[in-house]
C-alpha cells in the first residue's frame, strides 16, 4: 500500500489486528485495515469470508474478540449499534434493519427520531419526518406514494432504498454498505454509486461491499481482500486492473477453474449453474487484458 502519499492525512478508521470468534468459529482473524476520509474502501471476498462480520464489529453490532478500532485516532469501544451511530457511523446491513409492519417514516427514523417540544412532553416530530423522508427518497428517484404506508408493502428494491437513504442521511463520518446494490435495478444501483461518490467528496469514509465488479471498480479507491476470515492485504486502485479485482472477488485460483467451466458453458450455449451475465463479464474482461 502506498502510504507515503497520504502520510500527512490521518486515517478516519483504523482497524488493528481485529479478531472475532463465535464460540469455536473463527469469523475474523487478525484483520488490519485503514480507511482515510474521502476514500472508498471496497471489501472483497467470497461468501463466508467474514465481510459482514467485519462491518458488524465496525457498526457496534458485535464486540471484537481481540484487536482495536480507532476512529479519528481515538480508540473506541462500541457497546451497541447506538454508540456507533452516535459516533457518526451509519450502516446498511446485508439483512436490512427494516420493520415490515411499520411505516416508511417510522422506519427511516427508528432510533433517531426527530423531536420537538420540551422535557417529558417532547414528541416525535412526524410532520418533519414525513417531509424529510419524501425528500430523501425523491433524491433516490423514488416517489414515496404514502410515507405512512407500511414498508412491508414495498418491493425489495424500494426497501433497500429506504435503508440506504437512511444511512446516507445519518452517516456523518462513515458510511458502511453491505451489498447494498444486490436487490436493485440498474437505475437505482447507479443512484447508490452516485451517493457513494458524493459521500466520498464530502470527506466521509465509505466501506462498500459488493460482488459486482462494475459497481466496485468505478467508485473504489482501495480494495481489501478477505478470505476465510483473514485479510489478504489492502491494494490501491492504481495497483490493480479491473480483471485482477474480478479475480480477487471470485477468490483467486478458483477463477481459472471457473474460466474453464465457462468455456464449456459457452460452447454448449449453456444452461448450467453459473449466471450467464457472469460469463459475459469474464469474456469482456479477457478482451481487455493487455
Amino acid at each position: 500500500m502506498t502510504v507515503s502519499a497520504r502520510a500527512e492525512r490521518d486515517p478516519l478508521i483504523r482497524i488493528t489486528d481485529l479478531s472475532k470468534f463465535f464460540g469455536s468459529v473463527i469469523a475474523l482473524q487478525g484483520v488490519t485495515m485503514t480507511v482515510y476520509p474521502g476514500e472508498v474502501m471496497c471489501l472483497l471476498g467470497d461468501n463466508g469470508a467474514g465481510k459482514s462480520t467485519l462491518i458488524k464489529t465496525l457498526s457496534g453490532v458485535h464486540k471484537p474478540s481481540q484487536g482495536e478500532i480507532e476512529i479519528e485516532g481515538r480508540p473506541v469501544t462500541f457497546n451497541s449499534p447506538k454508540d456507533a451511530l452516535d459516533a457518526g457511523i451509519a450502516t446498511v446491513h446485508q439483512h436490512l434493519a427494516i420493520q415490515p409492519l411499520m411505516s416508511v417514516t417510522r422506519n427511516f427514523f427508528m432510533g433517531r427520531e426527530p423531536t420537538r417540544g420540551w422535557g417529558p412532553f417532547r414528541t416525535f416530530d412526524l410532520a418533519f419526518a414525513e417531509t424529510t423522508v419524501r425528500e430523501e427518497m425523491q433524491k433516490m428517484g423514488i416517489d414515496v406514494r404514502d410515507p405512512s404506508q407500511a414498508v412491508g408493502t414495498m418491493s425489495g428494491g424500494e426497501r433497500q432504498c429506504v435503508a440506504i437513504a437512511r444511512a446516507v442521511y445519518f452517516g456523518a463520518k462513515v458510511l458502511i454498505l453491505d451489498e447494498p446494490t444486490s436487490a436493485l435495478g440498474v437505475k437505482q444501483a447507479a443512484v447508490v454509486l452516485r451517493y457513494i461518490a458524493q459521500a466520498k467528496a464530502k470527506g466521509l469514509a465509505v466501506v462498500f461491499i459488493t460482488h459486482n465488479v462494475h459497481h466496485a471498480y468505478p467508485v473504489a479507491d482501495a480494495f481489501t481482500i478477505l478470505k476465510r476470515g483473514r485479510s489478504y492485504g489492502t491494494f490501491r486502485k492504481s495497483e490493480l486492473t479491473r480483471e485482477q479485482v474480478l479475480e480477487m472477488m471470485a477468490g483467486g485460483q478458483e477463477l481459472d477453474a471457473l474460466e474453464a467451466e465457462i468455456k464449456e458453458f459457452t460452447r454448449s450455449d449453456g444452461d448450467g449453474g453459473v449466471a450467464p451475465q457472469t460469463s459475459k463479464t469474464v469474456r469482456r474482461e479477457q478482451g481487455v487484458k493487455p
Binding site: 434493519a97 420493520q99 415490515p100 409492519l101 417510522r106 432510533g111 427520531e113 416525535f124 412526524l126 437512511r166
Partner: peptide, 25 residues
C-alpha cells in the same frame, strides 16, 4: 403514537434485531 419510546416499542416488537441495529435501546 407521539413519542420516541413509542416508536421503539413497535420496533422492538416487530424485529428486535433490526431495532437494535438502528440504535434502539
Amino acid at each position: 403514537l407521539k413519542t420516541r419510546p413509542g416508536n421503539w416499542i413497535f420496533g422492538v416488537g416487530g424485529d428486535p434485531e433490526a431495532a437494535r441495529n438502528t440504535g434502539v435501546p
